[in-house]
Structure formats: structure tokens, C-alpha cells
Design a protein around this nucleic acid. Structure first.
Length: 516
RNA sequence: GGCCCCGUCGUCUAGUGGCCUAGGACACGGCCCUUUCAAGGCCGCGACACGGGUUCGAAUCCCGUCGGGGUCACCA
């Protein structure tokens, strides 16, 4: 039997990092065993704009390279892959359960239910529905309907015995049936609920391994009850611990971004991304553009493989030392048995370290290919050749593709370079000796041929020796004058990239600016 | 609160009775290098939740305690 796994997002409008990890484990498991990975959509018929809310999720998976064999947009032989298109199928399943006496119409009103629950709570007794408005015969139904009541359909759960199943991550599980409620599987309006739909879908799609987040552990017994009632074979289960917040064991939530921003590591990654987004003119808000949402990383220029590699190690490990994996190695090495049982905290600074590593390893041509579009998006008429020079000079300072924007000034018009005023003050305005040297040195630029880093370095050193001064006296002034900034990569590389004419012009502009 | 799950450095983890005076990685601190920044080199800080057993020997097995979390919908 070929392995079939699935991930079933509901269309929420964004792809959450925790969801990606669960999907990744499913994908990896399927790929490892030569099986199929299915992307099914858990929408409900009430939701609107499903297509719109789904688009970022699908594009996120595509960007990450997590591809699916069947499901949304690609179709397949076991569709439909959207819950909203399967109402009749679910209702049919509900009917079967009723016929077998495993489910019943229930005419209780929400108020009556609430009252029962509250009184149970008051008496400190664990709540179990009284089945007071249960209707298994046509006569009962007619009687309740005459009262004007509407019915839901509930599971008639066993009230004795134990449900046992094996979990690939947790081991042998045992849940007492009494602890299970008579869960509603069909609403009063006829639509069906998650637990029912889920089991039917998994069967229809021939899912062999249900790999999902641990919050579904408590759904498992009732789903087994449904599956057995319907005569379906049981899938194998693996409940993955959830991804926790940075520095805590609470479940990571996109609704608590403001709180995470108090975490220094999270804040650093967030602000770095926001800065890039600002340069690109993206309209962003903390709610939708932050390091919990995959789109953030894509927009800022992270490497999808770095994200995947990080997520792989969040709750899973191969051994005590292997950290970096290619796609093939991941697929080959992955196993459910080595997934940890305890939740793992999301650590943005570790993700950053993976990004750093993979970015360093990226061939120059690939870096250019990734960085160039960022220059264009920011409105600079950058050419690949010059961007390549910049990337070569910047080296590992470029951590994400969007960092190329730190060097956008190389494309600024020489007469309109923006200066870091603080650096300008310190290195030029308040440094008359540096200004004198800079003025004198400017005239030497004309004679430098070729105008490359090596010649420039020699030129500056000769000049300093001739003047009997120190390197520091001119170097900082030169950097600020030509690049506008106090920091950057090697000074001589920077000068070479700006070019002879550019350097002369920029120095002139800077000198003229000093008096102002 | 009921039910369930989990518990090794700040974080991710290795560890399945002796290889552990607990290893690696990230982060952090210090020093060196240095024209700035980044990088690099070296050094360092830092954990078996606690208490009882079992055993010659326990991070590893058992019991209890404590702590953290998940879940208890006509959500998924």
C-alpha cells in the first residue's frame, strides 16, 4: 500500500510557520516512502472569498518547494478536495451512522445544553449530555418537531470501555470512552462538522498516515469511532507537538505578535524585515507582516530552503550533530520516530542563523539572481554586472536578498547622494584635517589606472606616507564622502565600484556641502 | 476543574543503565584581528524540575510531587 499523507489548511489568508512545519513533516514522510502528499482544503460552506484566502497559502507552499500530488488547484482522482463541495457526501455518511444506531437526532436547544453544562460544572461533576432530547424513533422526532424544535445530529458515543490506538510519536494511547461527549456531527442547518468531514475525507482520499498537530490528539478517539462506524480502515496516527512561542511553551499564535515583539530576537528579525519592506514601499502591518507568517520571509528575500531546514530541526533531529540538509538528505533521513514529544519554541535568531549559513553557501550567480529583483522593486535601474560587483564586495554582509538595498546608494546620482548626517559631522564637518587631506587626495584619483581596489589601496597608502599622517585621518572621510555612510564593505572596493568620475564628483559634492 | 500530553543549558537538541566530571548548535560574554560594519580566530558562561525507590551503578527504569501545556463548540 502506498503511503498517502495530507495537510488540510482552512483558508485563513496567510500561511503560519507552525502549519508549515506540520505540512513539511507530512510531505517529507510521503516523499520518503515514495507516496503521495495531498493538499485538501478544510473550508466550510459558510466561508466567503475562499479563493482569495487560499491564494497566500498555496503560493507559500509553492515558494517553499512543498509540492502536492493531489488537491487544491491540481485536482486528482480522489476529489473534490474542497470540503465545501462535499456536503451531500457527508450527509450520506451521517445517515449511515444514524441507521446503524451510532448517531442520533438531538432536539436540545443551545440554551438547554448550556444549562446542563453549567449545572454539571457547579456540582463539580464531569459533564456528559443527558440525551434528554435524543430522538431515535420517528415518533420522537415528530413529537419534538411539533414543539418547533430543530435537530442536530450527535454521535452516540460508548459510555464504557476504552479506545486504544497507537501513535507513531506518542506510543500507545488509551482514552476512556466515557470521557467523550456525544459530539455534534451535523448542524441544525444540515451542514456537517469537522470531525465527520475529516474522517470521510481521509477515507475518500485513501490517507494512510494522519500526521497532524497535537491539539488533534483529543479528536482522535471520536474520529476512530466514526471511522469504525462507517466501516473504514483506520489510518495510522502521528501527533506532532505544536510549535511554541519564542521563549515559552505556549502555542505559537499569530494573534500575539505584539507580545512577541517584546522578545529581542523576534523584534530584531521583525524590524529588519520591516525596514526592507519600507524601502520597497510595501504597506505592511505587524498583524500580517511578521516572522510568524511565511509571506514575510518571501517578501524580505529569505531562502526558502533555509526556512525549511530550520523548521525540520524544530522538534526533529537526525543525530547529535547534523544540522544542514539538502532536500534529498531531508527526505532520506526523516522519520516520525525521531520527532520529539515536547513542544519546541520558535527561535527567530536560530532561523536567522540557518538563513545566514545557506546564504553563504549560495553561488554568486544565484545571489545576483535573487538580489537583482529587489533593486528593481525599489526603483533602481540596476544592472546585473554592477550588482554582482556589489555582492562580491559585500560578501556575507548580505544575509537576505533584500539586504542588497543597503547598497542602493551605488546607483544614486553622484550629485544627489544622501549622507548620514551624523557620520558627515563627525568625519567631515568636525574634522578639518581630514578635509584638507581629502581635498588634496582628490586630485590623485585622476592618475589611478586601472581604477581597481588594489591600485586604490596603494594610492591611498602612498598618499598617507607622503603626507606623514595616519590612515585613519583620511579613510573615514573618504568613505563618508563617497558612500554617504559610516559603515559598509571594504573602502577600496566601494571606491572602485563608484568609479573614478563618480568618486571625484562625490568628493566635490561633499566638500561643497561642508560649509552648509 | 475533568480528560490528555510533556519536563536535559536562555533556545533547538544528543542521550534507550556504565562511553556523561552530560556532547553539539544558536544566542550571550570576553579577548585577538581590523579603515567602519560584517566575518574570522581563541576562550568562557550555561541544563538532567524535585523527592523517594530499583540497581554495584540512573539523565536514562518505577512511584510520587511540582511545574508547563493542550483540549473540553451547532470552530478547524
Amino acid at each position: 500500500m502506498t503511503v498517502r499523507t495530507r495537510f488540510a489548511p482552512s483558508p485563513t489568508g496567510y500561511l503560519h510557520i507552525g502549519g508549515v512545519r506540520t505540512a513539511l513533516f507530512n510531505w517529507l514522510f510521503a516523499r520518503k516512502h515514495g507516496g503521495q502528499f495531498i493538499l485538501r482544503i478544510d473550508d466550510t460552506d459558510q466561508q466567503r472569498n475562499v479563493a482569495e484566502a487560499l491564494a497566500p497559502i498555496l503560493s507559500g507552499f509553492r515558494w517553499l518547494g512543498i509540492d502536492w500530488d493531489e488537491g487544491a488547484e491540481v485536482g486528482g482522482p480522489h476529489g473534490p478536495y474542497y470540503q465545501s463541495q462535499k456536503s451531500a457526501r457527508y450527509q450520506d455518511a451521517v445517515r449511515q451512522l444514524i441507521d446503524k444506531g451510532l448517531a442520533y437526532h438531538d432536539f436540545a436547544t443551545p440554551e438547554e445544553l448550556k444549562a446542563e453544562r453549567e449545572s454539571a460544572e457547579k456540582e463539580k461533576r464531569s459533564y456528559l449530555y443527558s440525551r434528554k432530547w435524543l430522538a431515535e424513533t420517528p415518533a420522537d422526532r415528530a413529537r419534538f418537531e411539533a414543539e418547533g424544535r430543530k435537530s442536530t445530529v450527535r454521535l452516540k458515543m460508548p459510555r464504557a470501555g476504552t479506545c486504544r490506538f497507537h501513535d507513531h510519536i506518542r506510543g500507545d494511547m488509551a482514552i476512556d470512552w466515557v470521557s467523550e461527549q456525544d459530539h455534534v456531527i451535523q448542524r441544525a442547518d444540515g451542514s456537517c462538522l469537522y470531525n465527520l468531514a475529516n474522517v470521510v475525507d481521509d477515507f475518500d482520499m485513501k490517507i494512510t498516515h494522519v500526521i497532524r498537530a497535537e491539539e488533534h490528539l483529543s479528536n482522535t478517539a471520536r474520529q476512530i469511532f466514526i471511522a469504525q462506524g462507517l466501516g473504514y480502515p483506520l489510518p495510522e496516527y502521528a501527533h506532532v507537538p505544536f510549535v511554541a512561542e519564542p521563549g515559552s511553551k505556549n502555542k505559537l499564535s499569530k494573534r500575539k505578535i505584539a507580545q512577541y515583539l517584546k522578545n529581542q530576537d523576534f523584534k530584531k528579525i521583525y524590524e529588519h524585515g520591516q525596514n526592507i519592506a519600507a524601502v520597497l514601499g510595501l504597506t505592511t502591518s505587524a498583524d500580517t507582516f511578521n516572522p510568524v507568517i511565511v509571506d514575510f520571509f518571501e517578501q524580505v528575500g529569505y531562502l526558502p530552503h533555509a526556512i525549511v531546514n530550520y523548521l525540520l530541526l524544530l522538534g526533529w533531529s537526525l543525530d547529535d550533530k547534523t544540522e544542514f540538509f539538502t532536500r534529498e538528505e531531508m527526505i532520506k533521513s526523516f522519520s516520525l520516530e525521531r520527532v520529539n514529544k515536547a513542544p519546541a519554541s520558535y527561535d527567530p535568531s536560530k532561523l536567522w542563523a540557518f538563513q545566514d549559513h545557506h546564504m553563504r553557501a549560495l553561488p554568486l550567480a544565484d545571489k545576483v539572481e535573487r538580489c537583482l529583483p529587489f533593486m528593481h522593486k525599489a526603483g533602481h535601474a540596476a544592472d546585473a554586472a554592477k550588482v554582482e560587483l556589489i555582492i562580491r564586495a559585500a560578501g556575507d554582509r548580505i544575509k537576505v536578498a533584500g539586504d542588497i538595498l543597503d547598497y542602493a546608494d551605488f546607483f544614486a546620482p553622484d550629485h544627489a547622494l544622501k549622507y548620514d548626517e551624523k557620520a558627515f559631522d563627525k568625519r567631515l564637518r568636525k574634522a578639518p584635517e581630514s578635509v584638507r587631506l581629502l581635498t588634496a587626495y582628490k586630485d590623485r584619483l585622476a592618475g589611478i589606472e586601472p581604477f581597481d581596489a588594489a591600485k586604490l589601496e596603494k594610492s591611498v597608502q602612498d598618499f598617507v606616507a607622503a603626507e606623514g599622517t595616519k590612515l585613519e585621518q583620511i579613510i573615514h572621510a573618504l568613505r563618508v564622502a563617497v558612500t554617504g555612510k559610516a559603515v559598509g564593505f571594504g573602502l577600496y572596493e566601494a571606491l572602485a565600484i563608484v568609479g573614478k568620475q563618480g568618486c571625484v564628483k562625490r568628493i566635490e559634492v561633499a566638500l561643497a556641502k561642508i560649509g552648509n
